[in-house]
């Protein structure tokens, strides 16, 4: 039986209590995208600025549970300075850790990532979420929202 300690690692609580990159960029010029978890009412609003293909800055607002907020906070730290292709790869890797395996993610026909494998670092702490299937949607909310935002750029 999975215990609470599998879910609520110290680093998750830290990101929940001290979320990184909170706020909103002016949009435009920044891109803005919103996500909802209809199950629990969590909401996430991402604003991000691109320099060419690189995510130069990404800020997060909205509200939600410790898992969704910690995951968003960790994501914000992980994607800054990465290219769109790298972010797609990282997202695929993160979702695979959440036992979500997809041939393609995001849009129907997304541009392929660059095929990088990243050190997940802090994000590894979210691995325990898999043992609590109801919470996987909390952990992936910000990631799916970012994918939607990136897909919108492509059209």
């Amino acid at each position: 039986m999975a215990g609470l300690e599998d879910l609520y690692k110290e680093i998750i609580i830290d990101h929940y209590r001290n979320p990184r990159n909170r706020g909103e960029l002016d949009s435009p010029p920044a891109h803005k995208t919103e996500g909802f978890n209809p199950l629990c009412g969590d909401e996430v609003l991402l604003t991000f600025a691109l320099k060419g293909e690189i995510i130069e800055e990404l800020l997060i607002s909205g509200q939600g549970c410790s898992i969704s907020q910690a995951s968003a906070s960790m994501m914000s730290a992980a994607v800054q300075g990465k290219s769109i292709g790298e972010v797609r790869d990282l997202t695929r890797q993160f979702k695979a850790m959440m036992s979500i395996h997809e041939e393609s993610i995001g849009a129907d026909d997304p541009p392929p990532g660059d095929g990088h494998a990243f050190e997940l670092g802090d994000l590894e702490a979210l691995k325990g979420v898999v043992k609590f299937p109801v919470r996987i949607k909390c952990a992936t909310l910000s990631w799916n929202t970012l994918l939607t935002g990136l897909d919108e750029l492509e059209v």
Binding site: L4, G64, I67, F132, R135
Partner: peptide, 12 residues
């Protein structure tokens, strides 16, 4: 405490 986290602790 977010309700989701609260209910998780209660579930334990």
């Amino acid at each position: 405490v977010h309700p989701h986290d609260l209910s998780q602790v209660l579930d334990q």
